[in-house]
Write a protein that binds this DNA or RNA. Structure first.
Lengths: 199, 199
DNA sequence: GATGATCTATAGCGACCGCTAAGAAATAGG
DNA sequence: CCTATTTCTTAGCGGTCGCTATAGATCATC
């Protein structure tokens, strides 16, 4: 018993996410969002609250559809070491292909330092990422594909750090040799030392 | 034969740099800059051109006084391996102590993607950083303090990547154990494999 | 002290910002 | 049909943005 909406929430959120992703939070105006989402300001505010609420919703959606989905997919279809390697490969490929970079990284630098609520979300997702790498490390060390002499926790942390770094480098200077070389060295920490290999 | 300036250029530029450093380029208004630098808009525009020119000047100053100075200092006073280790330690310590993060990293993500001139500067400075690590790698491998089996170029690239990543993580979630663990693992790539150590 | 050059101060330009009040348009139930 | 409810449209609120025209203040030189 009311007028129906003339737009689709999911489609509109995708469009909004793309705006924030490309230009960042501050540089995206509500008018930009409205234009991209195909609705005017009052409809936008009625449907999604204010700009900040829309952003956090886009960020959550992005993280669920990208980071978490990737973790689930790789962890459920690949053995632990391959999952780590594949994750890194996909990040390198994405970084080279998509000039928008990673919304999580962009947000960690632009929004999180001035927004405690967003900082909490970012920190939690970084923790999830570290958890993924840590689980893979432990499982890989147990099955023998990853050198058992490395501290699993710290290697997992370096993997997260490397991914953040790759995203930064790619955004400013997307050179394939640079990203691939760095990723290869990070992954070399999974190799057993020479003694174990030749023993 | 004219009225002298009522402010010091260096002091004013330091104040402007702090503004950009803390809030970013977009979130810093010319009025903010004027207030921090102690001069009104017309003086600011007369002395430094527009906002963008002031920013690039601040960025150059920052890079000369921070990154380049650190490279020179470490490279001239420490042996190669120690220079790498010390660089990483200082980045971790700075990241934990200064909530502003690194202006180069902040700029690489916020400004560089939408500003070709700034992107060039950022890319060049990242190249200098990679060059520093590469020189240290080569020298350290020659003198035997760094494992000769690692590809110097790629390890240098991972060091740069790790630093970028540490800066991102610290800005969103400055946890000492996380940063130190990641840095330690990156530095472990300098260690000779067990065969070489025990030979 | 007058002159000319440079700097500073006041004020405000047009444009955009996030956001919203008020009313017209579109639906479901009666 | 009419009414109630929700959405959409128009218009605009006060505020800030980057930037500048104009005029007054302060100096070296003559």
């Amino acid at each position: 018993m009311a007028r129906p909406r003339a737009f689709d929430d999911e489609t509109a959120l995708d469009a909004a996410t793309d705006c924030f992703w490309r230009a960042g939070y501050g540089a995206t105006s509500v008018r930009d969002l409205g234009a991209a989402m195909g609705l005017n300001a009052p409809s936008l505010y009625n449907a999604f609250g204010d700009k900040h609420a829309l952003f956090t919703r886009c960020l959550d959606r992005y993280l669920d559809g990208n980071m978490r989905a990737r973790i689930r997919r790789l962890e459920s279809t690949l053995p632990p070491r391959a999952a780590i390697e594949r994750f890194m490969e996909e990040i390198v490929a994405r970084s080279l292909a998509d000039p928008r970079g990673c919304l999580l990284v962009n947000t960690a630098l632009e929004v999180a330092p001035h927004d405690a609520a967003v900082a909490e979300v970012v920190a939690a997702r970084l923790g999830e990422l570290e958890g993924f790498f840590h689980r893979c490390m432990v499982a890989g060390q147990r099955e023998g594909s990853i050198a058992p002499s490395r501290p699993a926790r710290d290697v997992a942390r370096l993997m997260v750090t490397t991914i953040m770094g790759l995203r930064v480098l790619a955004r400013a200077h997307p050179e394939p040799a640079l990203l691939r070389g760095a990723a290869r060295q990070a992954l070399s920490l999974l190799d057993p030392p020479a003694t174990e290999r030749t023993a």
